[in-house]
Design a protein around this nucleic acid. Structure first.
Length: 685
RNA sequence: GCCCUCUUAGCUCAAUGGUAGAGCAGCGGAUUCUUAAUCCGGAGGUUGUAGGUUCGAGUCCUACAGGGGGCACCA
């Protein structure tokens, strides 16, 4: 159906071409944006405007339509009597909603008062082969809105506004910092040691250097290296990547603003934060209050400073001063009946977990949180007043940590000690603990001034300002699991990602021994298992499951001689052994063509070509002078595909299905030969 | 990773286990002031995929895929 709509539009494109109308013209000179044109006085002539055609209403000899561009809409009117016949015809027969259109003419006002362009000349500027979403309801499906954000942007004013706001936020932050003497820089995304935060990194591989590299989890240590190098006020709007769960308030690919100022403390930064946030709110929203989904968040006046220890005492009833060790704190938490997921943490991490579990969600109005334990901040300076605490604050709004800033630890000797503590944590199984960053330590040893660093989650800030409750709403293209097949293809699960076969290899072998007796069949099944495993290896699938499928796919072949029944019993046996995955069972059913179960899935083709090719490979080995698999090459097996008389009973069609799993005949024969060579003794070849 | 929930025409949505429908878009026609235009006509579907239960499945069950929400982890 979608294809019909598309075909129709492709046909219109051909007819435009046939009529000598350029279908994808190079350029179009505009005199006004649409919103500008809409505010011109009646009678203004000589206009040239352009936009996407979003609505058309025809009344016999008069047609109204709306164009939309980046900043607005304009109604245009076509009068049949005042236009060349070809123009009128072309517009109604060949233009579609969604196409790009240029129009020349003059401004008039309709009876209902809408400023409208009376079209004197039309220009075709580009075709939409696929239709726009429904004009009234727009695009509602949240999945489509994210995958095809361009349609969401086209159809929803609210979405456009949200992203405009994000752009404005970035621009305002930049200009504010620039005006305060900051310099914007960029630091590496690919790094050999992930550093600057406690998080699990994404790992990727650099081919030329043949080393694993990590995607940046934070720009922190790089920016501080720049302070060593003489930068005094430096910032980066940095993309960060953390390999952790996704939910409405976390993205795995997000944007942080971080800056570092020499000679400042975290308290200087608190004052600066207030100034910056106020400026930002006034610039972007025009006020110091945010309406967030019915909740008013007020940034005017002094923001309270709250101490974490005091919060926990007041709201969770736990006095940290009476719990100087992790054990004592654990006891106090348990005594209060508070349940934390992990209790096997150090004192600082326990305090942090306790705070997140009990009080953080209640910090709605903006406040500065201080009194944060130092041992969860390995890069922060310890407080002179209390070394268990860090010189750190967080700006909490709506229960979200919007800003985290601290006085930086600039003592390289202490920094090494703190890194080593992290190493210990890592060794104890904390995957988020930091690595020792020798390069950073080296930089530190060359000397650092007092520094205060500051970081803000841009995505969260934008969600807050735009009243969104999910960060995915303020990112154009959030990461989604790829969808199999193209539009309209309805691919379903065709990945072949079967796993967790309920039998171990040994158990499968026992089942095999109990059912498969004939020598020929035993060799066929062993060979099939080897080929299936090789296919799994080649495509990154589960090797054990594939191997077992190969071994067990013909369990009933010795007993069941009727071709229309073979594999039914096999499936029954497997089901009785706990094999539930329908994809596996269907692949086994469908490998017997006579049964009439159609092969549709990747896995079906994998099994049928995998088990069939074994016959051709083994037959090819038998005609060699030494009858040994070792001297067989994939090429020569592939050649024998064409010799119809050779091994006649082996189905060439089934083998050819290797192309449906993504292998050429040559590749596939090569893979099969190598797989069988590994088990040659068992095959007697 | 676990739990809940959703997936029906290009889009937005209907259909007590009993013949898959509507609006918009698109197609044909009427219409010189509409703006969710209106009116008439016809067309559009393997109900996400694969199995199962049933005389009969969009509806019930299972597996799988994708989305949304929650838990956990994290900013």
């Amino acid at each position: 159906m979608e294809e019909d709509l598309r075909e129709l539009r492709v046909g219109k494109l051909d007819r435009l071409r046939a009529a000598g109308i350029p279908t994808y013209p190079e350029r179009f000179e505009r005199t006004h944006a649409l919103a500008e044109a809409a505010s011109l006085p009646e009678g203004t002539g000589g206009l040239r405007v352009a936009g996407r055609l979003i609505a058309v209403r025809t009344f016999g000899k008069l047609t109204f339509a709306h164009l939309q561009d980046r900043g607005g809409r304009l109604q245009i009117a076509l009068r049949r009597e005042e236009l060349p016949a070809e123009t009128w015809q072309a517009f109604h027969d060949l233009f579609d909603r969604g196409d790009f259109v240029g129009a020349e003419g003059s401004i008039f006002r309709t009876k209902t008062g809408e400023t409208t362009l009376a079209v004197a000349k039309l220009h075709f500027l580009g075709k939409a082969l696929l239709p726009l979403p429904e004009k009234w309801h727009g695009l509602k499906d949240p999945e489509l809105r994210q995958r095809r954000r361009y349609l969401d942007l086209l159809m929803s004013d609210e979405t456009r506004e949200r992203f405009r706001m994000r752009t404005k936020v970035l621009r305002t932050l930049r200009s504010f910092l620039d005006a305060h003497g900051f310099e914007e820089v960029e630091t590496p995304v690919l790094q050999t040691v992930p550093s600057g935060a406690s998080a699990r990194p994404f790992i990727t591989h650099h081919n030329a250097l043949d080393i694993d590299v990590y995607l940046s989890i934070s720009p922190e240590t790089w920016l501080k290296r720049l302070v060593v190098g003489g930068y005094e006020r430096v910032y980066e709007i940095a993309r960060c990547f953390r390999n952790e769960g996704m939910d409405p308030s976390h993205l795995q690919d997000f944007t942080m603003l971080e800056f570092y100022v020499a000679y400042w403390s975290y308290e200087d930064n608190m004052r600066f934060t207030e100034k910056l946030m106020r400026h930002l709110l006034v610039e972007v929203l025009g006020k110091e209050r945010i309406d967030w989904r019915g909740r008013v968040i007020d940034f005017s006046g002094e923001w309270p400073r709250v101490d974490m220890g005091q919060l926990l005492r007041d709201r969770a009833g736990i006095d940290l001063a009476r719990c100087p060790t992790a054990d004592e704190l654990r006891g106090a938490i348990a005594a209060k009946g508070i349940k934390l997921e992990r209790m096997d943490l150090g004192r600082g991490a326990l305090i942090d977990a306790l705070y997140k579990a009990t009080v953080r969600d209640d910090l709605i109005q903006p406040c500065f949180l201080t009194g944060i334990p130092s041992d969860i901040l390995p890069l922060a300076r310890r407080s002179d007043r209390d070394p268990q605490l860090a010189d750190c604050f967080q700006l909490l709004v709506n229960g979200w940590e919007i800003v985290k800033a601290y006085s930086e630890l600039v003592d390289p000797v202490e920094q090494r000690r703190r890194f080593e503590e992290q190493e210990t944590e890592r060794a104890r199984g904390d995957e988020e603990a930091m690595f020792v960053d020798e390069e950073y330590l080296l930089a530190m040893e060359h000397g650092m001034p007092p520094i205060s660093g500051w970081g803000m989650g841009i995505d969260r800030l934008c969600a807050l300002l735009s009243g969104s409750d999910s960060l995915r709403d303020v990112v154009f293209f959030p990461l989604l699991r790829p969808k199999g097949g193209g539009a309209g293809e309805g691919a379903g699960d065709d990945s072949g990602d079967v796993k967790d076969f309920p039998l171990s290899r040994a158990e499968a072998m026992a089942l095999f021994d109990g059912n498969v007796k004939s020598d020929y069949l035993r060799k066929h099944c062993l060979a099939s298992a080897a080929v299936m495993e090789a296919i799994a290896e080649r495509f990154g699938k589960d090797r054990d499951t594939f191997w077992c499928m190969g071994l067990l796919h013909d369990l009933d072949f010795d007993r069941v001689k009727e071709p229309t029944k073979h594999t039914r019993e096999t499936v029954e046996i497997l089901e009785s052994k706990g094999v539930k995955d329908e994809r596996i069972l269907k692949a086994i059913l469908s490998h017997n063509e006579a049964l009439g179960v159609e092969r549709t899935a990747w896995l079906d083709y994998a099994l049928s070509c995998g088990e069939t090719v074994t016959g051709l490979v083994m037959a090819s080995a038998l005609v060699l002078p030494d009858k040994k698999l070792a001297s067989l090459e994939g090429k020569s097996v592939a050649k024998r595909m064409k010799k119809k008389d050779f091994a006649k009973q082996v189905s060439r069609e089934a083998i050819l299905q290797c192309e449906r799993i993504g292998l050429t005949i040559d590749e596939f024969c090569d893979l099969a030969v190598k797989a069988l060579q590994r088990i040659a003794p068992a095959l007697g070849l």
